[in-house]
C-alpha cells in the first residue's frame, strides 16, 4: 500500500516536470526540418506525400531495419513456436459452428474490398496518405479474414518465409541501384534532376515490395499464433 502511494507520488512528480517541459517547448520549438521538407520534399524525391518521401528516400536506411525487425521477429517466433518448419498447418482455432454465418457472409463481401483497398494504399503511397507499411498491414488483415471464410486452409509457412527473405533481398537490391546510377547509397536510382513523374517509378516499386514483405511477415506471425492455439 505504501509502495503504491509512493509510486503515485513518483508518477505525479514526473508529470509535474513534464508540465514544465511542455511550457518550455512552445518557446523552443525548432521547425528547421518541417521547412526543409515543405520546400524541397517534392522536387528532391518525387513524392507528394512527404511522409513517404522521408521513409523511402531521406531515411530509407531506417526502413530497411524496420523491415529487418519484422524479418527477425518472424524467424524468432517460428523458431520459438515449434521445432519443425516443414509442418503444414494453420488450422483455424475457432470452431466452425461457433462462428456466426452472418460474420462469414460479411467476411466474404469485405475480403475483396479490403484486398483492393490495401493494394490501392500501397500503390498510391507517394500521392495520398498510406504506403507500403500501412497497405501491407491492410492486406495482411484481409488474409486473416480469409481464415474465417475457409478455416480448413493450409498454409505452407516455409514457402512464405522463403519468399519474405527473397523480397528483403530485392528491397536491398533496388535501393542499392542508386550506387550505380548516382554514386550514392540508398536513394532514388533516377538522377536528381529528373522529373517528378519518373522518380515515382522507384517509389511505386519500393512501396509494392515493402507492402508485400510486411503482408507476408504479418501473415506468418499470426499463422504461428494460430498453430499455438490448437
Amino acid at each position: 500500500m505504501v509502495k503504491q502511494a509512493l509510486l503515485l507520488v513518483l508518477l505525479g512528480g514526473i508529470f509535474a516536470v513534464f508540465y514544465l517541459v511542455t511550457e518550455d517547448l512552445s518557446e523552443l520549438y525548432n521547425n528547421f526540418g518541417k521547412t526543409y521538407f515543405q520546400l524541397n520534399g517534392l522536387l528532391e524525391t518525387g513524392s507528394r506525400n512527404l511522409v513517404t518521401a522521408i521513409y523511402l528516400d531521406y531515411r530509407l536506411f531506417d526502413s530497411f531495419f524496420e523491415a529487418g525487425i519484422l524479418l527477425v521477429a518472424v524467424a524468432g517466433i517460428i523458431w520459438i513456436s515449434k521445432h519443425d518448419l516443414n509442418e503444414k498447418n494453420a488450422q483455424f482455432m475457432l470452431d466452425r459452428y461457433k462462428t456466426p454465418d452472418l460474420f462469414i457472409t460479411f467476411s466474404r463481401i469485405v475480403y475483396p474490398m479490403m484486398l483492393v483497398f490495401g493494394f490501392y494504399v500501397i500503390i498510391n503511397g507517394h500521392l495520398s496518405p498510406g504506403g507500403g507499411f500501412q497497405g501491407g498491414a491492410i492486406v495482411a488483415t484481409a488474409i486473416l479474414i480469409l481464415y474465417y471464410i475457409d478455416h480448413d486452409r493450409e498454409t505452407n509457412i516455409k514457402q512464405i518465409v522463403t519468399i519474405e527473405k527473397l523480397v528483403f533481398f530485392l528491397i536491398v537490391l533496388v535501393a542499392s541501384l542508386s550506387l550505380l546510377t548516382r554514386g550514392e547509397f540508398f536513394t532514388n536510382f533516377m538522377p536528381l534532376d529528373s522529373s517528378v513523374a519518373s522518380k515515382a517509378i522507384y517509389l511505386v516499386i519500393l512501396n509494392i515490395l515493402i507492402g508485400f514483405k510486411v503482408a507476408l511477415g504479418l501473415w506468418t506471425i499470426f499463422t504461428a499464433f494460430l498453430r499455438e492455439g490448437r
Binding site: G33, R59, S63, E66, A73, I221, F225
Partner: peptide
C-alpha cells in the same frame, strides 16, 4: 503543414512495437 518527420518515424515505431508485442506474447505462451 504539420511536420512530416514525426509521422514517418512513428510508422517505424509502430512496426517495432507490434513485433515486440508479438514476440513477447509468443514467449509468454511458451
Amino acid at each position: 503543414i504539420v511536420d512530416p518527420l514525426p509521422q514517418a518515424l512513428m510508422i517505424t515505431t509502430i512496426v517495432i512495437g507490434s513485433t515486440v508485442t508479438a514476440l513477447a506474447l509468443m514467449l509468454s505462451i511458451k
